[in-house]
Design a protein around this nucleic acid. Structure first.
Lengths: 136, 136
DNA sequence: TGGAACCTTCACATAGATGTGATGGTCAAG
DNA sequence: CTTGACCATCACATCTATGTGAAGGTTCCA
């Protein structure tokens, strides 16, 4: 599992400790990770990377689980509200990041050496003046 | 300053300790924050919020300083490369966040109660399937 | 001459995400 | 049976961004 996800064993245990994943145990006590956990762990890491704390992730994760869109049973209004709120917070952060990124790009462009193209994709509005503000 | 930026005094001192800001000192030893520092602190907090560590921020911050675009003197190639690299990393994060955000929105839409509109702006592609992967 | 309201430094505390090591069980191959 | 490669738990360490409080100086207003 560690190899599949890139997360250290320690980290997997930590996620488990935080209730983010609950792997089965074999007779011998060994953890048995269902294949679907690899997606789940990646999602967790994505959200952590997004700045969400495990505590929040634990709450919104059930909503984002993979075999959903079949029947999503236990989605309390509270969870939906929380999810929406987190999404909005996330949107705000994204905006901050985009503005920062664009400021960097702008500077690099001005200086004139703008090689090192983004290897991933390329969302984002390449304008907006210079700086930034934090929200969280 | 603390009031202007929302950062606690302690935090301002911390940023100073990390070399991110270098306020002048009055006769009495009091810190004297130039007005431009309010922008700078906001920028710092934006970058911190972006997940960049102070160590990195310290390096790229001089490039993003405000009275720039006049004459930007000391931009070594190393700093430019670093800045470009950080910008690309940032772009990757942004993509991850956008995908996560869109997954949330998608879920909320499916469930049907998609009120709680984003109060800020509204970047982003409202599609892409579900999940995510971390890069950092 | 107070005293309130600032400021200073120093230092210890905390919380979250992770690393690392000690100690020991399990399993499969030799 | 033993050795190597797994696995388990526990516990302590680390790093970053912060909070908090103590002990004391400064400024200003009454």
């Amino acid at each position: 599992m560690s190899r599949l996800t890139g997360a250290s064993r320690r980290l997997l245990r930590y996620y488990e400790e935080q209730g983010l994943i609950v792997p089965d145990r074999g007779e011998n006590g060994y953890r048995e990770y269902d294949d679907r956990y690899v997606d789940r762990v990646n999602q967790i890491r994505g959200l952590l990377d997004a700045g969400l704390p495990t505590r929040i992730i634990k709450q919104i994760l059930p909503c984002l689980d993979k075999p959903r869109s079949i029947y999503f049973p236990d989605a309390t209004p509270e969870m939906l509200a929380l999810l929406a709120a987190e999404r909005d917070r996330l949107t705000e952060r994204i905006d901050v990041l985009i503005r920062n990124r664009d400021a960097m790009t702008e500077y690099l462009t001005e200086v004139g050496q703008c090689r090192a193209l983004a290897p991933g994709s390329s969302h984002g509005t390449p304008n907006s003046p210079s700086v930034v503000s934090a929200t969280s």
